[in-house]
Amino acid sequence: MKKFFTVLGGMGTLATESYVRILDQRTKTEKDQDYLDYIVVNHATVPDRTDYIIDHSKPNFLPAIVEDVQQQSLLKPAFMVMICNTAHYFFDEIQAATDIPIVNMPYLAISTMKKQYPNAKKVGLICTKGTLHDHIYEDYITDAGFELSLGDAEIQDEVESLIYDDIKIKGSVNEEKYYHILQTMHDKFGCDVIVLGCTELSLAQEMAPDHDYDVIDAQSIIADKSIELATKVRRGEDIDFSKIY
């Protein structure tokens, strides 16, 4: 297979399935051959990202992802996407392991937010404790000129419960809990836009989209970018990947 891209997934599996489902649904097709060419690496046994970021005595997830990247690089994909926000803690190290461009999901999400909501003042971030700890989204949001709200300990516990108790463990989305999180970030903390900084939250958005709150869904955005880039690759067009690092 030529002119394809690689999806570095499995962190977690249901979130990766959500990305692939959105990717295929949004691809304009009239026949089988119109779908995109890609390889999905569902590496479910990659150590927990948050565990390591918070406690470096826990297993490091970097070697597993670097191994995947190096294996896939031998196949020469046009680009890669990594469907885990928290794993971007090691983005520079992962990108350094290959000459193949890897799309930076958090950077892409906040760049899109800046264009889509230029008049927003306060931006809320909901994500894993690992993503909070590594400050990746926090830095991108503040560097873009927005005021940032992380909520409080109570809302973070609710977010963690939705991600781990409901989606990762039970394999289901608690719509009521998801809506309550969005409502609290909007009403209590005054957030104009809420960034979904975890792909499990993107799954929640896919399964429970019927609300009135403005959200930035990083997984949805990178799915659209994947379609755009893969289409250009198929057409043989040149791509400036430096704009999406």
Rank of each mutant, 00 (worst) to 15 (best):
Y213C: 00
Y19F: 15
N60H: 09
T131P: 03
C198M: 04
Q116E: 13
L75H: 14
K225W: 01
F90C: 06
I100F: 01
L182N: 09
G190P: 03
K188Q: 13
L8Q: 08
K28N: 08
F4R: 07
D92P: 01
K129V: 08
D165K: 10
G236H: 07
A204F: 00
K2Y: 03
T50K: 08
T13A: 12
L150M: 10
T142C: 02
G190L: 06
E175F: 03
L8G: 03
M113P: 00
K31Y: 11
L196K: 09
L201N: 02
I110K: 04
V41N: 08
L14K: 14
Y164Q: 03
D68H: 05
I141F: 03
K129M: 13
C191D: 07
K28V: 14
P59G: 10
R26M: 12
K122H: 09
L108P: 01
A144S: 14
E17D: 09
P47V: 11
D99I: 08
I53D: 07
E176Q: 15
L162R: 04
K3S: 13
S111I: 05
E200F: 05
H180T: 14
A204C: 02
I65S: 02
I221N: 00
Y117H: 15
H133T: 13
E158D: 13
A109C: 01
K121F: 06
I155C: 04
H211L: 03
K115I: 07
T199F: 03
P101L: 05
Q70K: 15
L162N: 01
S202V: 05
S220I: 07
Y137S: 05
S226N: 04
I110Y: 05
P209K: 12
Q33C: 11
L74H: 08
E237D: 15
A97L: 11
A78T: 08
Y213T: 10
G236R: 04
A223M: 04
D32Y: 10
Q33V: 14
C198T: 07
Y19E: 03
E93M: 07
R235L: 14
T112H: 13
M185F: 13
I167R: 02
N174L: 09
